[in-house]
């Protein structure tokens, strides 16, 4: 049996949802409501002690870390492969995935926490917040909640994140100049892992992503949006109130 614990079809949850949908693999979906902090509840922490989504459970084996989960899915369900057969392309795919995890996603995440999570955090009553923070297993996550509930990130930190987003989207533009997909002109885990970050970046930062500056990235998002797997993933539950939707569908 294959089960996925996930939140909205956004960010890291989306990476794995997309991979499963594109591979046409059936799975049992367990929606974890981040707005209600279900990821820090004892029942979920018993599955993933770090209290983070997504988590894949395959015949009882717990598989974590979205990028590594997608490599696992490609190992176990190779019928529709998402890693280039050419080893050099495969290495380039992993370098890109690492860049996404190390630079692109943390930069976008900081801005997401500042603009979206902050609106939730500042409305939580102080005593209640302390109680919620105490349940968070990872110190890094606790610190992030405390940061956005307080003075949030500095202008300098946010500007540096925006700079990194600019570098990320420019890198993509160069990769897509002569290619429909990010690596080796073939749909791969690189595209799956990058979609959620990029799908709405033009609305968030039109100065970084627009038809003049990044025509190839815009065309790539349209190409991705047309895929049945992407549409199926986007149709998964999304309980985030409209007012709080900064990225994603």
């Amino acid at each position: 049996m294959l089960e996925l614990y996930h939140a909205e079809p956004v960010a890291n949850s989306m990476k794995v949802l997309l991979c499963l949908k594109e591979k046409k693999i059936d799975f049992v979906s367990h929606y974890v409501d981040l707005m209600r902090f279900e990821q820090h509840e004892p029942a979920f922490v018993a599955i993933n002690p770090n209290g983070q989504v997504p988590v894949l459970v395959h015949d009882g084996a717990v598989i974590t870390e979205s990028t590594v989960i997608n490599e696992y899915l490609d190992d176990v369900f190779p019928a529709i492969p998402f890693r280039p057969a050419n080893m050099v392309d495969r290495a380039h795919m992993r370098v890109w995935n690492k860049f996404v995890d190390d630079v692109y996603t943390p930069a976008l995440s900081m801005i997401g926490w500042h603009t979206l999570v902050r609106r939730i955090a500042v409305n939580i009553e102080k005593g209640k917040l302390a109680e919620l923070l105490a349940r968070i297993p990872l110190k890094e996550q606790r610190d992030k909640w405390a940061t956005v509930a307080g003075d949030s990130f500095t202008e300098e930190q946010l500007a540096d994140s925006k700079r990194k987003l600019g570098i990320s989207v420019q890198k993509m533009e160069a990769m897509l100049k002569n290619s429909d997909y990010l690596i080796g002109n073939q749909f791969s885990l690189a595209d799956l892992n990058t979609y959620s970050n990029t799908a709405s970046l033009d609305r968030l930062f039109p100065d970084l992503m627009n038809p003049t500056a990044t025509p190839c990235v815009i065309a790539w998002v349209e190409r991705m949006n047309a895929r049945p797997g992407v549409q199926a993933a986007l149709a998964m539950p999304n309980k985030v109130p409209d007012a709080l939707r900064v990225f994603g569908a």
């Binding site: 598989i63 870390e65 590594v68 190992d75």
Partner: peptide, 8 residues
């Protein structure tokens, strides 16, 4: 594949 996941 599971050990491979652990490795990664």
């Amino acid at each position: 594949p599971y050990e491979r996941w652990r490795m990664r």
